[in-house]
Design a protein around this nucleic acid. Sequence first.
DNA 1: CTATAAATTTGAACCGGTTCAAAAAAAGTT
DNA 2: AACTTTTTTTGAACCGGTTCAAATTTATAG
Lengths: 223, 223
Amino acid sequence: MFKNELATDKAEQTRRAIFEAALALFREKGFDATTMQEVAVRAGVAKGAAYYYFPGKEAIIQAYYEAVQRSHEQMCGAAFVTDKSLKSRLKVAMHSKFDLVREDRKLLGVVFRYTGEPENPLSCLGKGTAEIRERSVRVFEDAVAVEPLPKDLMRLLPLALWALQMGLLVMFLYDGSKEQQRTRKLADGALDLTLKLLVLVKLPILRPVRSKLLALLTEAELL
Amino acid sequence: MFKNELATDKAEQTRRAIFEAALALFREKGFDATTMQEVAVRAGVAKGAAYYYFPGKEAIIQAYYEAVQRSHEQMCGAAFVTDKSLKSRLKVAMHSKFDLVREDRKLLGVVFRYTGEPENPLSCLGKGTAEIRERSVRVFEDAVAVEPLPKDLMRLLPLALWALQMGLLVMFLYDGSKEQQRTRKLADGALDLTLKLLVLVKLPILRPVRSKLLALLTEAELL
DNA sequence: CTATAAATTTGAACCGGTTCAAAAAAAGTT
DNA sequence: AACTTTTTTTGAACCGGTTCAAATTTATAG
């Protein structure tokens, strides 16, 4: 993804200039309405230069999302040091991501553009994004780590929470309510419900359902 | 979406030629690798002609998906006449859609391309696709109609099943197992589990969870 | 059968993402 | 410093989706 290796100061500066120019323009006019020409001009480089640093226009969005993820990890990491309540940690994990992308709903949708195309390196579910996806899941692993749980649930829960977050992020993009209150409330409600289920799931009546579910997901290689 | 109105025989024939040429090429070489030029040539028309019938390249995929949906409705409609078992009806609804798109996994992914972009008329969650989405949900409404259920569940269940189908369709695209057995089994398992939950959900212990969930989704305007 | 209007078809031109060979700049070598 | 190699930058050219004004065909009216 990155041209991380062997980047001199100057090169890194150019990369930054292109990245920031692109981001600013994407925010102003939207992704599709922004041309690479404009990006280059604002960054003060030639049109082709951007392609030395990014494999394509969408790759800039990918880089943006990686930056968001990095911030998310830092925010959650910091919060988790002091906050030891499971519920509160989960809410921090969800809402801090919303906070980070709040102003960028126009951009963020592009992250999902190749969801249905497994071969595309930018597919948010594909091989090309495996690393960042693992990091996203890890945030929830860390969040849940305060709670003693059976091993199978320890594995299922973070993944389920990550999936919930992905779904809520899509809803966030569509949410026309003021400051996306609708999605925020749904997130809170979904987390409360999850915690309730976490208690219920220990009940004997639900024993077969639980083990069935786990077997199912394991067989489907989703776990 | 369609140029349904005022299509003469000949025009309809041209439209068909373009549609079929495009589909064949998409299947052979994939969506992105197929150029509109090639489509036009195979259809025996000028490049620009396609744009008289379809607003753009992706719109052809949209038309394809509408055809799939039409077939799906017919297949399910026919099956539901005789089949009155809820479980069996749900499996028909799921698997028949898989059957319909089995050979078209390369194309189908494009349907999801604008999932994250609410304004895009091709977004599979947006305004522009509301009608076809309603029809997709209606299939599950019909499937479930044999089961006497409280009104709130009658509303929730078909939507949940539609969402499940969307999720499974994405998985279907990624599924490298032979004939997508993995996804097929997960679908069966998920449906079995759903039916189990449908029984459990009447239990008093789950009363608060159930009403909480319904309230939540209603408030989020998802129901 | 004209004449007129509407629908269909064409192909050239536009636009913007992407490629690439060559130039320029920077780093490394002797 | 002079030369070589590598990194960075450039800009022209390519490619393919899309637009559109003009041409052609078809339908409708008189």
